[in-house]
Design a protein around this nucleic acid. Structure first.
Lengths: 360, 360
DNA sequence: CAGCGGGATGTGAGCGGTAACAATTCTGGC
DNA sequence: GCCAGAATTGTTACCGCTCACATCCCGCTG
């Protein structure tokens, strides 16, 4: 075991502080834990000794006796993506004042990976785990976990047999579909995400239901993989079909790819084809045309999941199985009534331009 | 101190395993640490006892004596943004097999926040710290840290007085500028990021140098805040100026905003104005037109920083002060020779369409 | 003025591991 | 058949902290 800091003398411990302050180690402990029964003067000299020595309590020693690590684990699918990254950010921000948060960013969400990550966290001694589990495989893996620490899932769909928080995808999809229908479209096509994703499935059923409810015919389902390229490829396939007038995309990226393909084929958005996305990524207000989309508040999702987890750590039973968060539609310029023809590039709606976001 | 799991009986400890296997606790320890001198049969019975009891070594106890937490801390600016998120992902992926990684996502990078986050990590007992420090304030804060654990900065510019890894922004900016100049443009305008960002400054100087080197006049510097809205606002201001024919944007988001503003004013990209971005976010290949931009490999940056940090933890001195990573230009369709006029929407270059990326 | 309650402080015993060393059991060589 | 030396296992002492309890000192009561 090569020690990290070889030459340096050992850092000061509580006994050193006690000696310098002329008290017992227990008194130092009392000061550190702000125990009431310490004379102000004593506290002062202890604090002075702590400062002079640059003493830091040893977390491992404290954990050993208190059995509290004040650490949470978050396992997530590829955290470089917008959704997971936003949830993670929400979680971390909310947790920072009371817990350390450890992460595991998996390149895949198969059973083994998820279980492996959870196991690592358990070895580390986390007090609770959040799994950002947007795929069915992850949900399945989570329900198999038999840990003695609470676990909550996020973005795992609203029907998972787990304590969880999720955006109501079906409602969001219905919102988008109805919006297009209300605009006067006969029906709405849907470019879905991969079937292995819970969100994709729920959005499909939301779309189906809205269609059925309105008595609109259900076109063949189109399936992408969430990425721009897949939306583009599908767009190339459908651009030639004149009956495609309204498309609800499973996410903004596929919508972007679709819009590009339509543009290449000379079909104007929204004049010839109306497009609605899902997610409301920061860029979508500036697409050409600005994208009408369904916004889901990832940050809020993360915060809610964290709050639930902390409640459970504190011994409260989880209030509900799944905490649903309602998404809402952000109407911009990519969808319009079927007949309408647009001339020049429309001015950006002011609301969108007012959104501020700093980023590199 | 309310215990997390009240009713449950205490989890098994090494002594329990020893008792069940009929050996001493030390032998159990030897098995766990794969010590060579343990008889195969003994190892077997210990392993069986471990499995039967579902025993997990207590990390705190081990840390207390070995003085190794196997934990790293990463402090970063808002990890929901593409750059930080990608670096974080690169770091975590590379570290996962040997270290736990704890994160702190700060909403601001002022001295107090950064120092506070570092302090928390020190309290936690991390063995090393990586700071994603794209702002000058963060760099300043880092150089003030006097920790007894190694610290490396990422994305902090190539001249910071710290062990660090950074993309060579100046080189990237020069690349973009020269590209536009070589296309035949008389000069190149630049929309920079905020002055408080190291990357913004370095890109400005790269742009200046390339201009000077080519003997091109230097137009007034335009400053945004990295966000789409700022690019859009600046675009509205400059769209009317016919002398603006080539613009190098500090990042892809501002380029997107700019392109939208230009479109609204009837100026075609690249026919009337050529624009080049920076970052190469996943969406930029699908913008209208596909964005020519400078790609920086954030993931690689993270991995390199991590490798350096681990080297330092292992006692090796850092090889160089700043590890530079060269960005490269990705030529797509948003920049062309000044005279050229485009008819229909250009087909997407195949190279871009071939890029695959799965994301929610 | 003895006795008493409670605030302030000290003492000793672990928490669950690992390291150093001691003890025991096997080996093989002569 | 005996002993050196290696292989295997056990014993004991911490790592740095908190908890339970003992102690001490003080003013106050009866």
């Amino acid at each position: 075991m090569a020690p990290a800091r070889a030459g340096r003398s050992r850092p000061p411990v509580m006994a050193d502080v006690a000696r310098l302050a002329g008290v017992s180690h227990q008194t130092v402990s009392r000061v550190l834990n702000s125990h009431p029964n310490v004379k102000a003067q004593t506290r002062g000299s202890v604090l002075a000794a702590i400062a002079e020595l640059g003493y830091r309590p040893n977390a491992a020693a404290r954990t050993l006796v208190t059995r509290r690590t004040r650490t949470l684990g978050v396992v997530s699918f590829d955290t470089s993506l917008y959704g997971p990254a936003s949830m993670l950010y929400g979680i971390e921000r909310a947790a920072a004042h009371s817990y350390f948060v450890s992460i595991a960013s998996l390149p895949a969400l198969d059973r083994r990976s998820v279980l492996g990550a959870v196991d690592r966290f358990l070895d580390q001694g986390v007090e609770g785990i959040i799994v950002i589990a947007p795929k069915t495989s992850a949900v399945a893996a989570c329900s198999r976990v038999r840990a003695n620490v609470p676990l909550v899932a996020v973005g795992c769909g609203t029907h998972a047999p787990l304590t969880s928080a999720a955006v109501d995808n079906a409602a969001g999809a219905a919102l988008a579909t109805r919006y297009l229908l209300d605009l006067g479209h006969r029906t709405v096509h849907h470019i879905a995400g991969p079937a292995s994703w819970v969100d994709a499935q729920e959005r499909i059923s939301g779309w189906r239901e809205a269609l059925a409810q309105a008595g609109a015919p259900e076109p063949e389902l189109l399936s992408g993989d969430w990425g721009c390229p897949s939306g583009y490829r599908i767009g190339q396939r459908i651009a030639a079909s004149p009956e495609v007038r309204a498309v609800f995309c499973g996410n903004d990226h596929m919508a972007l790819g679709l819009i590009r393909a339509l543009a290449e084929h000379g079909r104007r958005v929204p004049g010839d084809v109306s497009v609605v996305g899902f997610d409301d990524i920061p860029e979508s207000a500036y697409f050409l045309p600005p994208l009408t989309t369904v916004r889901q508040d990832f940050g809020e999702l993360g915060r809610r999941a964290l709050a639930t987890l902390i409640d459970m750590i504190d011994g409260h039973p989880p209030p509900v199985s799944c905490l649903r968060i309602a998404p809402h539609l952000v109407a911009r310029a990519s969808a319009s009534a079927p007949g309408s023809r647009l001339g020049a590039v429309p001015r950006l709606p002011l609301g969108a331009a007012a959104e501020e976001r700093e980023h590199p």
